[in-house]
């Protein structure tokens, strides 16, 4: 029987990522990991790409992980977990293990969108029974806020600095969630730790499917986003309320948007809270704010249209 989705009940569960790790105050990553591990109703084994989460939770001789955990390198969390999962199947087949165990890989956006993209795509195509969770904080935060292909348009990072000639990152972010959906795997979703019920529900679905699943989770980073340490949840909520980061899922290829704001807030509401977008509010960059709004609108409308097509399709059948 699954633990009911009530904070009171969930809070009784054992914390599988203990306190005492060295992640920053207000970091989105450990909030996500705790919710993910809270969602699991069977033992899980995790692989972790190199990054903040990995270095800050396992400084030898300590570890914050109360589950079996492995880190090998930066670009290969998906390949590593596919090896672990294959050994599980091999030993189960031989009768050397009989327990039900599930397998999760964690990677930041650098380890997932960029350097780990090939190994992620390969593992998904091979159909391993794994869940890949990307905590997307929109840059290489561990090495000091360098731009990745997940960095939003206009963001100021140390390798896309807002300079006198170039106003921050000039490209929009890669839509990895849709690219993963295009792999035709059983479950793909996008969520945030500010929507804990949404995230835990999605992780449960991802763990339940027989085959690969991918969840992209927005991870607030106060160092890189240039905010104070106590606005993690409210900033994250703004990403959803402005449709910068919509909550949606693909179940067996069928899209469902899990939350549609009654009144979609302008994207500047999300941007203005963060120092990484501060330069966009000077008069000469006004066109960029417009461009960002247009980009967010275009993506959101495409999502609505796609969901509409599914609805029309199912109505026709009925």
């Amino acid at each position: 029987m699954a633990t009911p989705l009530r904070l009171k009940e969930l809070s009784k569960k054992e914390e599988l990522l203990t306190g005492g790790h060295r992640l920053c105050a207000g970091c989105g990553a450990p909030i996500i990991i705790r919710q993910v591990l809270m969602a699991a109703e069977v033992p899980v084994v995790a692989a972790n790409a190199t990054g903040c989460l990995e270095v800050s939770t396992t400084i030898y001789p300590y570890t914050a992980w109360r589950i079996p955990w492995i880190h090998t390198a930066f670009e290969n969390a998906a390949a590593t977990i596919s090896g672990v999962e294959s050994m599980y199947r091999a030993l189960k087949k031989k009768g050397k293990i009989d327990r039900k165990i599930k397998f999760i890989a964690f990677g930041g956006d650098g380890g997932t969108y960029d350097i780990g993209f090939q190994s992620l795509s390969g593992a998904m195509e091979r159909g391993h029974d794994i869940v890949y969770i990307c905590y997307d904080n929109g840059a290489y935060m561990n090495t000091g806020i360098q731009r990745s292909s997940a960095t939003p348009l206009g963001a100021n990072t140390t390798t896309s600095p807002a300079g006198r000639v170039i106003p921050g990152k000039v490209q929009p972010r890669k839509n990895l969630t849709k690219i993963m959906a295009a792999h035709g795997i059983p479950y793909v979703a996008q969520s945030t730790p500010a929507h804990w019920r949404d995230l835990i529900t999605k992780v449960r679905k991802a763990l339940e499917v027989d085959g690969p699943a991918f969840i992209n989770v927005l991870a607030h980073c106060n160092r890189g986003w240039r905010t104070s340490t106590n606005t993690t949840i409210q900033d994250t909520k703004l990403a959803v309320e402005t449709c910068f980061w919509p909550l949606y899922e693909y179940e067996n290829g069928k899209l469902r948007i899990n939350y549609k704001p009654k009144e979609k807030k302008p994207v500047v509401e999300f941007l203005k809270t963060q120092g990484r977008f501060k330069h966009l509010f000077s008069p000469e960059n006004e066109h960029l704010l417009k461009e960002i709004q247009e980009y967010v609108d275009r993506e959101w409308e495409a999502l609505l249209r796609e969901e509409g097509m599914w609805r029309e399709g199912s109505e026709e059948k009925e």
């Binding site: 390949a79 590593t80 090896g83 672990v84 050994m87 199947r89 091999a90 195509e125």
Partner: peptide
Amino acid sequence: VDTELITVESEHSAMSACIGAAAAGGRV
């Protein structure tokens, strides 16, 4: 053979998967 064969997408992933599998306690 009873082997689980992982037909990976690169040698980098081949060795990564071998490491994951070996750490999971079998012969690789």
